[in-house]
């Protein structure tokens, strides 16, 4: 505990020094301090989001980060429901459903802003109009509990999961809650068609909501095999000593780039910009890669040796525009097949 505290204190102090030197003349910092806080609607797992928030607060004392963590689809729901009642609460919006940002941009709800350094990110991480940028990325994978499933019998491909021997042994997260899963469903529909999900439903998987949750379900052994979920969540539970193994199916893994944008109506615009720049900085991006097991678009980030390189994987990217257009269809058909 003390050890971790001191490490993060040193790291934070170090970040603060760099930040102060770089922006000594920055009037924006002063303005951000006056605003006093930044409200972050995020779908990043709560523990990870809190970590980023604490780093920021240590780097910029006096500016609080209000973390509101829930599923991607819930975030969109909250934003729209609040706007309908003319409530302008969110500063920074971060979900794993790139389609949301197409919609929000179209409705003129996003501020045009390029985070410092984001220019150097690869194409898949950047909106061509400059409204949103990928803060992090993950791939959807299969994972299994090694205490229950021997490695030789573990599913290796998405199609393996259709085998009736997995009946009652699977868990899936929900595209009606999670953007990671909505992206996953679209990618696999392209790969194997809706029929794949119809057949998968025959194996009666347990339905959880968040793409974070399957990792916990598999780790506890409640269901031995997860049919989707961000690889970083499985990586984290594995690191904690749980008997979990990750499979990157050869047919390809759906790549989920989770964008961030500042709301056009942000009540704390300066703090929002400061925070966004901070999260796209090398240091936070490196933390996301190291302790959270995420991929990022930052060219300078190094990844843990025990994670496959993004370049070595066969990636199944999703088109944000299509994700936006087919959002309703994805949720509706999923519910139709899986019941709720």
């Amino acid at each position: 505990m003390t050890m971790r505290w001191s490490v993060s204190a040193v790291l934070a102090g170090w970040l603060a020094l760099g930040a102060v030197a770089a922006s000594a003349q920055d009037a924006r910092l002063e303005a951000a301090r006056k605003e006093g806080k930044v409200v972050w609607y995020t779908s990043l797992a709560l523990s990870s989001a809190e970590k980023v928030a604490k780093l920021f607060e240590a780097a910029y004392p006096g500016i609080r980060v209000e973390v509101h963590r829930t599923g991607s689809q819930r975030i969109l729901q909250r934003v729209m429901q609040e706007l309908q009642a003319n409530l302008k609460l969110a500063d920074v919006i971060h979900t794993s459903d790139a389609g949301h940002f197409v919609l929000l941009k179209e409705k003129k709800l996003l501020m045009k802003y390029t985070p410092a350094g984001a220019d150097a990110f690869p194409a898949g991480f950047k909106d061509r109009d400059g409204y949103y940028y990928g803060l992090r990325a993950t791939v959807n994978v299969i994972a299994y509990n090694t205490k229950i499933v021997p490695a030789a019998e573990a599913p290796r491909t998405w199609k393996d999961l259709l085998d009736p021997k997995w009946k009652g042994k699977l868990v899936t997260a929900h595209p009606g809650y999670s953007g990671v899963i909505a992206t996953h469903v679209l990618a696999l529909v392209h790969l194997h068609g809706w029929d794949y999900f119809k057949q998968l439903a025959q194996n009666r998987p347990m339905l959880v909501q968040s793409a974070v949750d399957p990792s916990g379900v598999v780790a506890s052994g409640e269901r031995p095999v997860a049919v989707n979920g961000g690889d970083y969540t499985f990586y984290q539970v594995k690191k904690k000593g749980n008997p979990v193994e990750i499979v990157y199916p050869k047919e390809g893994v759906p790549l989920v780039v989770s964008p961030t944008a500042i709301a056009a109506f942000a009540p704390h615009p300066n703090a929002a910009k400061l925070f966004t720049d901070f999260t796209f900085g090398k240091d936070v991006q490196q933390v996301l890669a190291d302790t959270e097991g995420l991929y990022t678009g930052h060219p300078g980030v190094r990844y843990p040796a025990d994670k496959p390189k993004l370049g070595d994987l066969k990636l199944l990217p999703a088109d944000p525009e299509e994700l936006e257009k087919r959002n309703e269809e994805i949720k509706k058909r999923f519910v139709e097949f899986f019941g709720a």
């Binding site: 729901q77 339905l207 909501q209 709720a340």
Partner: peptide, 19 residues
Amino acid sequence: LPAGFHTITTQIWALFQYP
């Protein structure tokens, strides 16, 4: 919900999802 079925209350709540 994990078992794949709704009741009236959970369904009403689900109807609040966007849109």
